[in-house]
Design a protein around this nucleic acid. Structure first.
Lengths: 221, 221
DNA sequence: TTTCATTTTACGGAATCCCGTAAAATTAAT
DNA sequence: ATTAATTTTACGGGATTCCGTAAAATGAAA
């Protein structure tokens, strides 16, 4: 079982109960941070002092507030943590229930477990910690693959990025420059146009306006 | 302070930590349920046995699962609970951060407090319980804004008609023919364009996409 | 009815979006 | 390393939207 665990989670309530779950599991040393930057700093310190963490449990999205952060989300935190300490085990604990997004976490960031914040998430987290401590991967049962039929189109992170920009009033022609700034891969205007067009075709949707309405209704955005 | 509190919250982790918060506050009797129907049943039983609850803390959205429920959400639960026990204090504890939606909770359901699940939500909940036990209303500080200032534009039926058409994928240039069919007054394309432009200017919105997002968020559509 | 004010529509040019095709770049395979 | 396949970008023309101006229609008042 794990000896030293770091929890990065901005919601105080979630933070409290994750700590309690770890207590029940008998983890001797638990640290928690409300901000990604603080979490990484702690990770670094522990590493420098030859007493590194052996597990990171992190949320994906951290709300921005007056305390401006270098690292603004769980994905970047994981990347930074792994760069520092490649062998670090990582469990993501988040509301995200988009299967594709979770797949991307396993594929791109090689996380060890994904626990969705949901009805039985405490028991779920316990199972995840167990599995990961045995060097196994774990993902919440309801994200195994079943709800695939739900969405006629499988929204990728890239799609959501673009649609979010539209929601913020960014004109289509300005999206490329934003994508380039954030190093998001296909950044050409053509690519954006094509992707939007593909989404709309797949969903039998005819205008951007209708697409936004759809995404809002389905809570995709 | 409260003697008997019922927590209705489907997320196990949230449930655990709300219980812990109440413990810290010294609430002697705490019950919790993961489903609305169970929560209402317990409320009813306690009432029938002349030992009613004096506070309900509930989430707004409960995830559907195989356990089919009569009552599917916090709003209905509150309505049913108040019908049974009109004086019951109610604190809503939810992720919802749409000011208009929260306003509606106070206006339509006359809830006593709204605590948003966010960074300092444990401390926030404590303050809410304190306030409500002193017969005061409470809402999370970041949702304090005055409700009147919110709607910078007063949506007319005509506006909603047009925006609804856009949401259904009608291209702008086809809107006039729909309006004519339904005998809606200014049906010219120019009028439609001007109206949309006026709305966007009033709300400092730059695109139709952003307008749709705004209307969906504010529950105007 | 005439006049005036307001609303609605028509029109036109510029900007943007849409969509197909081709070039360029990247990736994979041999 | 070369070739082939795929992805990404560039380009261009037609459609649509955007926005200002002017004409037409409507309504109110005298």
């Amino acid at each position: 079982m794990f000896k030293k665990v770091l929890i990065a989670e901005d919601h105080e309530h979630a933070n409290i109960s994750v700590r309690k779950t770890l207590e029940d599991l008998g983890t001797p040393q638990k640290e928690f941070r409300f901000y990604c930057d603080d979490a990484l700093k702690l990770l670094q310190q522990a590493y420098d002092q030859d007493n590194p963490f052996d597990l990171l449990i992190t949320d994906l999205s951290f709300e921005e507030d007056s305390n401006i952060q270098e690292i603004t989300g769980g994905r970047e935190l994981i990347r930074a943590a792994r760069k520092l300490q490649p062998g670090l085990k990582v469990i993501v604990f988040s509301l995200e229930n988009n299967i594709t997004a979770v797949d991307e976490l396993f594929d791109d960031l090689d996380i060890d477990a994904y626990v969705r914040k949901a009805r039985y998430d405490a028991a779920d987290l316990r199972r995840a910690v167990d599995a990961v401590s045995g060097n196994k991967k774990y993902r919440s049962p309801d994200l195994m693959r079943n709800k695939k039929v739900e969405n006629a189109y499988d929204f990728k992170l890239y799609d959501i990025e673009i649609i979010t920009l539209l929601c913020n009033g960014t004109p289509q022609k300005n999206i490329p420059s934003y994508l380039k700034e954030n190093d998001i891969k296909p950044a050409g205007l053509s690519s954006v146009e094509k992707r939007l067009s593909a989404i709309k075709t797949a969903l039998s949707i005819s205008s951007n306006e209708q697409l936004i309405a759809y995404c809002k209704d389905k809570r995709i955005i």
